[in-house]
Nucleic acid binder design. Structure first.
Length: 146
DNA sequence: GTTCTTACA
DNA sequence: TGTAAGAA
């Protein structure tokens, strides 16, 4: 069974981050950002919570907001203004989207056995005559065309 | 007990 | 941005 290819959509089901939600108190203790700040940042449209039934009900934040808040907090601690910190975080989130897209589309199948790994990176050419593979050898990835 | 808004420092 | 109030 160890040689069965790993399917990425199964991994996504095993760890489905889309289902993670937090209330303001949790998000605050997770990030070290006060609830007062979180409410203010949301009012400024720097972060967003999920649609509420009415303005009096508790905010609910998606896990992606945890990454955003943590990022803003990081750059704030580095001395950036709140505005500049948000701008920095937006750039990093853009990069993370590109990387996610790259992994999602670029990795076809993964085979593993005994601490080795082979990743099928798909067709190398338009004519689809050659596949590009990455293999783990001696703790390092090497690339092959076959 | 937690979160909400509003208001003041 | 922190803190305190009273309500939900």
């Amino acid at each position: 069974m160890a040689n069965d290819p790993i399917e990425l959509h199964i991994m996504k089901k095993i760890f489905n981050a889309e289902k993670l939600f937090f209330r303001i108190g949790e998000l605050s203790s997770m990030t070290g950002v006060s609830t007062r700040q979180l409410r203010y940042w949301e009012q400024k449209n720097y972060i967003h919570s999920i649609q509420r039934d009415d303005e009096q009900s508790a905010r609910v934040f998606h896990f992606k907001e945890y990454a955003r808040v943590s990022g803003i907090k990081y750059f704030l601690d580095q001395g950036y203004s709140l505005q500049a910190a948000v701008k920095q975080v937006n750039q990093y989130i853009d990069v993370s989207h590109f990387l996610h897209k790259f992994v999602k589309e670029g990795i076809k199948t993964v085979k593993t056995s005994n601490n080795t790994c082979e990743i099928d990176l798909g067709w190398l050419d338009e004519a689809k005559t050659q596949h590009l593979y990455a293999r783990l050898e001696d703790e390092k990835f090497k690339y092959y065309v076959e």
